[in-house]
């Protein structure tokens, strides 16, 4: 829907392969994300989407292939990847459960602050200034995702949808150039999913490229400039929403069941579509044991 003119690549993954013993979870996948783009990554459960994310962010060291961010090849170390400018969320929420909402976001600021042990012990003016700045930025982000009123709650006490949002805020705190979202609307109700769509658009409008894994097709096709479909570790199709949507192999890959939530049907049965969307999620995710 949006065609960006400036197309300098933010992320370039080429020939990424990940083998676990005999299992090839990701097979020679190439993917490019350009600045200002929202790219979707779809595929049935166990297709290797999360594994691909882990290869991009250094949590796994890819067996083959290389990943570069804005032209420089990334070392396979998670903290260096984040430092370079790629932030992510997790499919199974991984917040710091016993830290407050604000503290979670403050941890996200880690790469953009410098204060070490000595400065913490001596508490000079520099320390105070940096701490205040961090807090201000964190509160700004909480305002952005609409959680500032819960800044002092423990992360574990938030409802599910807000936990997902908080993960996004925590990722944004590292001022990334590329945000990787792993099933950001999983477990959300239709309204929350809509709100998340708006949120992703707002993030893109801040100049942050987004690569998103999602099972909710309505979400994906509303949102993404380009969509890639991964099946059994291989990239099957890549293209605009229309191309991928019409591709028979994609439909077949999703267990042969044509999904009902296509944007064309929207006006007819919006609620039904959303419900069957989340219903499909719950059935597909049962066997999912992603990292």
């Amino acid at each position: 829907m949006t065609t960006t003119t400036a197309t300098s690549p933010v992320l370039e993954a080429s020939g990424v392969t990940m083998r676990f013993g005999g299992l090839t979870a990701v097979r020679s996948v190439d993917l490019t994300v350009n600045s200002g783009e929202i790219v979707g990554l779809i595929g049935p459960n166990g297709a290797g989407k999360t594994t691909f994310f882990n290869c991009l962010t250094g949590l796994y060291i890819p067996t083959e292939g290389k990943v570069s961010y804005k032209g420089t090849v990334l070392p396979p170390k998670p903290h260096l990847v984040t430092n370079a400018g790629i932030a992510r969320t997790f499919q199974n929420i991984r917040l710091f459960a016993n830290m407050t909402v604000l503290e979670n976001v403050l941890v996200g600021r880690h790469t953009r602050t410098k204060e070490g042990l000595w400065s913490a012990l001596l508490r000079g003016p520099g320390f105070r200034k940096a701490e205040t700045a961090s807090r201000e930025r964190a509160m700004e982000l909480l305002e952005f995702i609409g959680l500032s009123h819960k800044a002092d709650h423990l992360a574990r006490n938030l409802p599910y949808g807000e936990q997902r949002k908080l993960e996004i805020a925590r990722a944004l705190a590292s001022d990334p150039g590329l945000l990787l979202l792993d099933e950001p609307t999983a477990g959300m109700n239709p309204q929350e999913t809509r709100a998340t769509e708006e949120l992703v658009f707002a993030i893109r409008d801040q100049g942050i490229a987004v690569l998103v894994i999602e099972h909710d097709m309505r979400f994906i096709f509303n949102l993404c400039d380009r969509v890639a479909c991964l099946v059994q570790g291989e990239k099957l199709v890549e293209g605009t929403s229309d191309v991928v949507q019409g591709d028979e192999r994609v439909i077949a890959a999703y267990l042969g069941t044509p999904f009902e939530g296509a944007p064309g049907d929207e006006e007819v049965a919006e609620v039904e579509a959303a419900e069957s969307g989340s219903g499909a999620q719950s059935t597909t995710s049962k066997e999912g044991s992603a990292q």
């Binding site: 949590l59 903290h79 992510r88 997790f90 991984r94 710091f96 790469t111 990722a171």
Partner: peptide
């Protein structure tokens, strides 16, 4: 959560 912590940089 050590994994999440390293992913936060």
């Amino acid at each position: 959560d050590e994994t999440a912590a390293t992913a936060m940089g």
